Amino acid sequence: MTNRLSRLLETRDWLLADGATGTNLFNMGLMAGDAPEFWNVNETAKIKALYKGAVDAGSDIFLTNTFGGNAARLKLHDGQDRVFELNKAGAEIAREVADASGRSVVVAGSVGPTGEIMEPMGTLTYSSAVEMFHAQAEGLKAGGADVLWVETISAPEEYKAAAEAALLAGMAWCGTMSFDTAGRTMMGLTSQGMSDMVEKLDHGPLAYGANCGVGASDLLRTILGFAAQGAETPLIAKGNAGIPKYVDGHIHYDGTPELMANYAVLARNSGATIIGGCCGTTPDHLVKMRAALEETPKGPRPTLDQITSALGGFSSATDGTSDDEPVSTRRGNRRRRPT
Protein backbone atom coordinates (compact mmCIF):
# COMPACT_ATOMS: atom_id res chain seq x y z
CA MET A 1 0.00 0.00 0.00
CA THR A 2 1.82 3.10 -1.22
CA ASN A 3 1.11 6.18 0.86
CA ARG A 4 2.73 9.34 2.15
CA LEU A 5 4.57 7.58 4.97
CA SER A 6 5.99 4.78 2.84
CA ARG A 7 7.30 7.35 0.38
CA LEU A 8 8.98 9.32 3.15
CA LEU A 9 10.54 6.17 4.56
CA GLU A 10 12.07 5.48 1.16
CA THR A 11 13.79 8.87 0.98
CA ARG A 12 14.61 9.82 4.59
CA ASP A 13 17.04 8.38 7.15
CA TRP A 14 14.83 9.53 10.04
CA LEU A 15 11.43 11.08 10.60
CA LEU A 16 10.26 13.17 13.53
CA ALA A 17 6.93 12.13 15.02
CA ASP A 18 4.92 14.29 17.42
CA GLY A 19 4.77 14.50 21.20
CA ALA A 20 2.05 14.09 23.79
CA THR A 21 -1.67 14.51 23.21
CA GLY A 22 -3.00 14.42 26.75
CA THR A 23 -0.33 16.67 28.28
CA ASN A 24 -0.94 19.39 25.73
CA LEU A 25 -4.74 19.11 25.92
CA PHE A 26 -4.63 19.36 29.71
CA ASN A 27 -2.63 22.55 29.26
CA MET A 28 -5.49 23.80 27.06
CA GLY A 29 -8.11 23.10 29.72
CA LEU A 30 -9.11 19.46 29.32
CA MET A 31 -10.24 18.10 32.68
CA ALA A 32 -9.18 14.72 34.06
CA GLY A 33 -11.85 12.13 33.31
CA ASP A 34 -13.18 13.92 30.23
CA ALA A 35 -13.06 12.24 26.83
CA PRO A 36 -10.60 14.18 24.62
CA GLU A 37 -12.27 12.80 21.50
CA PHE A 38 -15.36 14.95 22.13
CA TRP A 39 -13.15 17.99 21.55
CA ASN A 40 -12.90 16.93 17.89
CA VAL A 41 -16.39 18.38 17.48
CA ASN A 42 -16.79 20.65 20.53
CA GLU A 43 -13.38 22.39 20.66
CA THR A 44 -12.13 22.22 17.09
CA ALA A 45 -9.92 25.31 17.40
CA LYS A 46 -8.01 23.72 20.28
CA ILE A 47 -7.54 20.45 18.41
CA LYS A 48 -6.28 22.37 15.40
CA ALA A 49 -3.84 24.20 17.70
CA LEU A 50 -2.68 20.86 19.13
CA TYR A 51 -1.91 19.52 15.67
CA LYS A 52 -0.39 22.75 14.43
CA GLY A 53 1.93 22.88 17.44
CA ALA A 54 3.51 19.60 16.42
CA VAL A 55 3.73 20.50 12.72
CA ASP A 56 5.19 23.94 13.39
CA ALA A 57 7.79 22.33 15.68
CA GLY A 58 8.97 20.19 12.78
CA SER A 59 7.08 16.92 13.08
CA ASP A 60 6.91 14.85 9.90
CA ILE A 61 4.18 12.66 11.45
CA PHE A 62 1.51 13.59 13.96
CA LEU A 63 -1.23 11.57 15.61
CA THR A 64 -4.92 12.34 15.62
CA ASN A 65 -6.81 12.99 18.85
CA THR A 66 -8.51 9.59 18.71
CA PHE A 67 -6.53 7.39 21.12
CA GLY A 68 -9.69 6.40 23.02
CA GLY A 69 -11.96 6.52 19.99
CA ASN A 70 -13.14 2.91 20.10
CA ALA A 71 -16.60 1.84 21.25
CA ALA A 72 -15.42 0.28 24.51
CA ARG A 73 -13.70 3.43 25.74
CA LEU A 74 -16.31 5.84 24.41
CA LYS A 75 -19.01 3.83 26.17
CA LEU A 76 -17.58 5.14 29.45
CA HIS A 77 -18.80 8.57 28.28
CA ASP A 78 -22.00 7.37 26.57
CA GLY A 79 -20.34 7.95 23.22
CA GLN A 80 -20.23 4.40 21.86
CA ASP A 81 -22.53 5.35 18.97
CA ARG A 82 -20.24 8.19 17.88
CA VAL A 83 -17.16 6.19 16.87
CA PHE A 84 -17.27 7.05 13.15
CA GLU A 85 -18.20 10.70 13.76
CA LEU A 86 -15.48 11.46 16.32
CA ASN A 87 -12.70 9.65 14.47
CA LYS A 88 -13.63 11.22 11.15
CA ALA A 89 -13.74 14.68 12.72
CA GLY A 90 -10.34 14.23 14.37
CA ALA A 91 -8.78 13.13 11.10
CA GLU A 92 -10.42 15.90 9.06
CA ILE A 93 -8.91 18.63 11.24
CA ALA A 94 -5.54 16.89 11.00
CA ARG A 95 -5.76 16.64 7.22
CA GLU A 96 -6.45 20.36 7.00
CA VAL A 97 -3.40 21.19 9.15
CA ALA A 98 -1.11 18.80 7.27
CA ASP A 99 -2.17 20.03 3.84
CA ALA A 100 -1.64 23.66 4.86
CA SER A 101 1.91 23.01 6.08
CA GLY A 102 3.58 23.37 2.70
CA ARG A 103 5.50 20.09 3.06
CA SER A 104 4.77 16.38 3.18
CA VAL A 105 3.35 15.67 6.64
CA VAL A 106 1.77 12.35 7.60
CA VAL A 107 -1.58 12.20 9.40
CA ALA A 108 -1.49 9.11 11.60
CA GLY A 109 -4.84 7.95 12.91
CA SER A 110 -4.29 7.10 16.57
CA VAL A 111 -5.80 3.80 17.70
CA GLY A 112 -5.34 2.98 21.38
CA PRO A 113 -6.25 -0.22 23.25
CA THR A 114 -9.85 -1.11 23.96
CA GLY A 115 -9.24 -1.08 27.70
CA GLU A 116 -10.85 -4.52 27.94
CA ILE A 117 -9.14 -7.79 28.87
CA MET A 118 -9.11 -10.38 26.12
CA GLU A 119 -10.07 -14.03 26.41
CA PRO A 120 -9.32 -16.34 28.13
CA MET A 121 -8.43 -14.08 31.06
CA GLY A 122 -11.17 -11.58 30.22
CA THR A 123 -14.35 -11.40 28.21
CA LEU A 124 -13.24 -9.52 25.08
CA THR A 125 -13.19 -11.84 22.07
CA TYR A 126 -10.76 -11.47 19.21
CA SER A 127 -13.59 -10.89 16.73
CA SER A 128 -15.06 -8.13 18.91
CA ALA A 129 -11.68 -6.41 19.10
CA VAL A 130 -11.33 -6.56 15.31
CA GLU A 131 -14.83 -5.12 14.92
CA MET A 132 -14.12 -2.21 17.27
CA PHE A 133 -10.80 -1.36 15.66
CA HIS A 134 -12.29 -1.67 12.18
CA ALA A 135 -15.09 0.77 13.01
CA GLN A 136 -12.54 3.25 14.26
CA ALA A 137 -10.31 2.73 11.21
CA GLU A 138 -13.16 3.47 8.81
CA GLY A 139 -13.81 6.81 10.51
CA LEU A 140 -10.13 7.76 10.38
CA LYS A 141 -9.93 6.72 6.73
CA ALA A 142 -12.98 8.80 5.83
CA GLY A 143 -11.41 11.80 7.55
CA GLY A 144 -8.24 11.59 5.50
CA ALA A 145 -5.70 9.79 7.71
CA ASP A 146 -2.70 8.52 5.75
CA VAL A 147 -2.06 5.54 8.03
CA LEU A 148 -3.40 3.98 11.20
CA TRP A 149 -1.17 4.35 14.26
CA VAL A 150 -1.85 1.60 16.79
CA GLU A 151 -0.24 2.53 20.12
CA THR A 152 0.22 1.63 23.78
CA ILE A 153 -0.88 -1.98 23.26
CA SER A 154 0.01 -4.64 25.84
CA ALA A 155 -1.62 -7.86 24.63
CA PRO A 156 -0.33 -9.56 21.46
CA GLU A 157 -3.86 -10.69 20.58
CA GLU A 158 -5.06 -7.09 20.60
CA TYR A 159 -2.15 -6.05 18.39
CA LYS A 160 -3.05 -8.78 15.91
CA ALA A 161 -6.70 -7.70 15.99
CA ALA A 162 -5.68 -4.15 15.09
CA ALA A 163 -3.59 -5.49 12.19
CA GLU A 164 -6.60 -7.38 10.84
CA ALA A 165 -8.79 -4.30 11.22
CA ALA A 166 -6.29 -2.26 9.19
CA LEU A 167 -6.43 -4.87 6.45
CA LEU A 168 -10.23 -4.81 6.43
CA ALA A 169 -10.14 -1.02 6.10
CA GLY A 170 -7.55 -1.22 3.32
CA MET A 171 -5.08 0.94 5.26
CA ALA A 172 -1.38 0.79 5.95
CA TRP A 173 -0.49 1.00 9.62
CA CYS A 174 2.20 1.35 12.25
CA GLY A 175 2.05 -0.19 15.70
CA THR A 176 3.77 0.32 19.03
CA MET A 177 3.47 -1.48 22.33
CA SER A 178 4.23 -0.16 25.80
CA PHE A 179 6.96 -1.90 27.79
CA ASP A 180 6.95 -1.45 31.54
CA THR A 181 9.08 -2.77 34.38
CA ALA A 182 11.66 -5.40 33.41
CA GLY A 183 11.23 -4.64 29.72
CA ARG A 184 7.92 -6.43 29.27
CA THR A 185 4.44 -5.29 28.37
CA MET A 186 1.76 -5.67 31.04
CA MET A 187 0.86 -9.00 29.44
CA GLY A 188 4.45 -10.25 29.58
CA LEU A 189 5.65 -9.73 25.99
CA THR A 190 9.33 -8.83 25.45
CA SER A 191 10.92 -6.85 22.63
CA GLN A 192 12.05 -10.12 21.08
CA GLY A 193 8.54 -11.52 21.36
CA MET A 194 7.08 -8.48 19.63
CA SER A 195 9.60 -8.66 16.80
CA ASP A 196 8.78 -12.32 16.25
CA MET A 197 5.06 -11.54 16.22
CA VAL A 198 5.39 -8.65 13.76
CA GLU A 199 7.39 -10.70 11.29
CA LYS A 200 4.61 -13.33 11.17
CA LEU A 201 1.68 -10.97 10.55
CA ASP A 202 -0.07 -11.31 7.19
CA HIS A 203 -0.66 -7.55 7.07
CA GLY A 204 2.46 -6.27 8.75
CA PRO A 205 3.09 -2.66 9.82
CA LEU A 206 5.14 -0.12 7.91
CA ALA A 207 7.02 0.42 11.17
CA TYR A 208 6.81 -0.90 14.71
CA GLY A 209 8.32 -0.15 18.08
CA ALA A 210 7.63 1.16 21.57
CA ASN A 211 5.91 4.13 23.16
CA CYS A 212 5.21 5.40 26.66
CA GLY A 213 6.50 2.96 29.30
CA VAL A 214 8.55 3.99 32.31
CA GLY A 215 11.13 6.39 30.91
CA ALA A 216 13.32 7.26 27.95
CA SER A 217 16.23 5.08 29.09
CA ASP A 218 14.08 1.96 29.37
CA LEU A 219 12.48 2.66 26.01
CA LEU A 220 15.85 2.90 24.28
CA ARG A 221 16.93 -0.38 25.83
CA THR A 222 13.80 -1.87 24.23
CA ILE A 223 14.75 -0.30 20.87
CA LEU A 224 18.17 -1.93 21.16
CA GLY A 225 16.33 -5.21 21.74
CA PHE A 226 14.36 -4.75 18.53
CA ALA A 227 17.49 -3.82 16.57
CA ALA A 228 19.27 -6.94 17.82
CA GLN A 229 16.67 -9.09 16.04
CA GLY A 230 17.92 -7.82 12.68
CA ALA A 231 14.50 -7.10 11.22
CA GLU A 232 14.34 -4.78 8.22
CA THR A 233 11.04 -3.14 9.24
CA PRO A 234 11.69 0.47 10.41
CA LEU A 235 11.59 0.99 14.17
CA ILE A 236 9.62 3.57 16.15
CA ALA A 237 10.75 5.20 19.41
CA LYS A 238 8.25 7.41 21.26
CA GLY A 239 9.53 7.84 24.79
CA ASN A 240 8.16 9.89 27.65
CA ALA A 241 9.74 13.23 28.49
CA GLY A 242 11.32 12.07 31.71
CA ILE A 243 9.61 10.73 34.80
CA PRO A 244 6.19 11.95 36.04
CA LYS A 245 6.10 13.90 39.31
CA TYR A 246 3.04 15.12 41.19
CA VAL A 247 3.45 18.85 41.82
CA ASP A 248 0.76 21.23 43.09
CA GLY A 249 -2.06 18.89 42.16
CA HIS A 250 -0.83 18.20 38.61
CA ILE A 251 1.37 15.65 36.89
CA HIS A 252 4.58 17.11 35.48
CA TYR A 253 7.31 15.35 33.52
CA ASP A 254 10.86 16.30 34.41
CA GLY A 255 12.43 15.76 30.99
CA THR A 256 13.82 19.03 29.61
CA PRO A 257 13.97 19.86 25.90
CA GLU A 258 17.74 19.32 26.11
CA LEU A 259 17.28 15.83 27.56
CA MET A 260 14.81 14.92 24.82
CA ALA A 261 17.24 16.22 22.21
CA ASN A 262 19.83 13.79 23.56
CA TYR A 263 17.20 11.05 23.60
CA ALA A 264 16.32 11.69 19.94
CA VAL A 265 19.93 11.30 18.81
CA LEU A 266 20.42 8.19 20.93
CA ALA A 267 17.17 6.74 19.57
CA ARG A 268 18.38 7.18 16.00
CA ASN A 269 21.76 5.68 16.89
CA SER A 270 20.00 2.76 18.59
CA GLY A 271 18.24 1.89 15.34
CA ALA A 272 15.01 3.89 15.33
CA THR A 273 13.86 5.55 12.11
CA ILE A 274 10.71 7.25 13.44
CA ILE A 275 11.45 9.24 16.59
CA GLY A 276 9.02 11.18 18.70
CA GLY A 277 7.87 11.72 22.26
CA CYS A 278 5.01 10.49 24.37
CA CYS A 279 3.78 11.70 27.78
CA GLY A 280 5.01 15.15 28.73
CA THR A 281 6.49 15.98 25.31
CA THR A 282 5.55 19.48 24.15
CA PRO A 283 6.35 21.46 20.98
CA ASP A 284 9.30 22.99 22.84
CA HIS A 285 10.77 19.51 23.20
CA LEU A 286 10.11 18.72 19.55
CA VAL A 287 11.94 21.83 18.32
CA LYS A 288 15.09 20.74 20.18
CA MET A 289 14.70 17.15 19.02
CA ARG A 290 14.44 18.20 15.38
CA ALA A 291 17.47 20.47 15.65
CA ALA A 292 19.55 17.74 17.29
CA LEU A 293 18.66 15.20 14.61
CA GLU A 294 19.49 17.66 11.84
CA GLU A 295 22.74 18.90 13.34
CA THR A 296 24.22 15.73 14.85
CA PRO A 297 25.77 13.14 12.55
CA LYS A 298 24.62 9.59 13.11
CA GLY A 299 26.91 7.75 15.48
CA PRO A 300 27.52 4.16 16.56
CA ARG A 301 24.96 2.18 18.51
CA PRO A 302 25.14 3.41 22.12
CA THR A 303 26.04 1.25 25.06
CA LEU A 304 23.70 0.91 28.02
CA ASP A 305 26.12 3.00 30.08
CA GLN A 306 26.01 5.78 27.49
CA ILE A 307 22.20 5.77 27.60
CA THR A 308 22.02 5.97 31.39
CA SER A 309 24.70 8.65 31.52
CA ALA A 310 22.68 10.84 29.18
CA LEU A 311 19.11 10.04 30.23
CA GLY A 312 19.18 8.48 33.68
CA GLY A 313 19.09 4.96 35.06
CA PHE A 314 16.91 2.02 34.09
CA SER A 315 13.93 0.99 36.19
CA SER A 316 15.05 -2.65 36.25
CA ALA A 317 18.25 -4.63 35.96
CA THR A 318 17.34 -6.41 32.72
CA ASP A 319 15.23 -5.88 29.61
CA GLY A 320 13.15 -9.01 30.06
CA THR A 321 14.73 -11.04 27.27
CA SER A 322 17.16 -13.20 29.27
CA ASP A 323 16.22 -16.81 29.96
CA ASP A 324 16.18 -16.34 33.73
CA GLU A 325 13.92 -13.28 33.65
CA PRO A 326 10.58 -14.06 35.36
CA VAL A 327 7.39 -13.44 33.42
CA SER A 328 5.36 -10.55 34.83
CA THR A 329 2.64 -11.68 37.18
CA ARG A 330 0.46 -8.68 36.41
CA ARG A 331 -2.73 -9.47 34.60
CA GLY A 332 -4.28 -6.08 33.93
CA ASN A 333 -4.73 -4.86 30.38
CA ARG A 334 -6.31 -1.48 31.02
CA ARG A 335 -3.67 0.74 29.54
CA ARG A 336 -3.77 4.29 30.79
CA ARG A 337 -4.17 7.02 28.25
CA PRO A 338 -0.80 8.54 27.30
CA THR A 339 -0.44 12.07 28.62
Results as ranks from 00 to 15, higher is better:
270 S>Q: 02
90 G>Q: 07
269 N>R: 00
247 V>C: 09
159 Y>C: 08
314 F>T: 02
283 P>W: 07
142 A>G: 07
237 A>M: 07
22 G>M: 04
327 V>K: 13
31 M>V: 13
91 A>Y: 01
196 D>M: 13
22 G>C: 05
49 A>M: 01
25 L>S: 03
283 P>H: 09
310 A>H: 09
27 N>W: 06
150 V>S: 05
212 C>K: 00
38 F>M: 10
152 T>L: 02
286 L>R: 03
215 G>I: 04
113 P>N: 14
140 L>D: 00
37 E>G: 12
263 Y>N: 06
156 P>T: 11
203 H>Q: 01
250 H>V: 15
75 K>V: 11
148 L>Y: 04
317 A>Q: 03
329 T>V: 14
162 A>C: 14
287 V>W: 10
57 A>W: 04
23 T>S: 12
228 A>P: 03
221 R>Y: 07
290 R>M: 10
224 L>I: 10
40 N>G: 12
106 V>G: 06
43 E>P: 01
29 G>C: 03
82 R>I: 08
137 A>P: 04
235 L>K: 03
202 D>P: 02
301 R>K: 06
297 P>D: 15
180 D>Y: 07
25 L>W: 04
182 A>H: 01
228 A>V: 05
331 R>S: 07
259 L>Y: 04
198 V>L: 08
136 Q>W: 06
152 T>Q: 02
295 E>K: 15
261 A>D: 13
332 G>K: 06
319 D>Y: 02
181 T>G: 10
243 I>Q: 09
296 T>P: 03
62 F>P: 01
88 K>T: 06
41 V>I: 15
223 I>P: 00
63 L>N: 03
325 E>T: 15
239 G>V: 06
43 E>K: 13
50 L>Y: 10
335 R>F: 08
134 H>M: 06
306 Q>L: 08
297 P>R: 11
274 I>W: 01
334 R>Q: 15
257 P>F: 10
329 T>S: 13
29 G>T: 03
214 V>W: 00
285 H>W: 04
172 A>P: 06
232 E>P: 08
107 V>W: 04
237 A>H: 05
93 I>W: 01
136 Q>F: 07
296 T>H: 05
55 V>E: 01
45 A>L: 10
155 A>K: 09
16 L>P: 05
10 E>V: 02
171 M>D: 00
292 A>T: 08
295 E>H: 12
190 T>G: 08
26 F>P: 01
115 G>I: 11
327 V>D: 11
198 V>W: 03
233 T>A: 11
158 E>K: 05
41 V>S: 08
84 F>V: 10
271 G>Q: 00
290 R>E: 09
178 S>W: 00
262 N>C: 09
98 A>H: 07
267 A>L: 02
199 E>K: 14
260 M>T: 09
278 C>Y: 00
69 G>W: 11
337 R>D: 13
193 G>Q: 11
22 G>N: 05
171 M>I: 02
70 N>T: 15
316 S>M: 06
304 L>K: 15
281 T>N: 03
213 G>Q: 02
80 Q>S: 15
57 A>I: 05
160 K>T: 13
107 V>L: 07
65 N>G: 03
115 G>P: 14
3 N>V: 05
35 A>L: 13
166 A>S: 06
165 A>K: 00
37 E>W: 11
47 I>N: 03
300 P>G: 05
262 N>E: 15
224 L>R: 11
55 V>W: 01
215 G>W: 02
192 Q>N: 09
189 L>P: 08
176 T>F: 04
20 A>T: 01
296 T>M: 05
148 L>E: 04
27 N>E: 12
263 Y>L: 08
55 V>D: 00
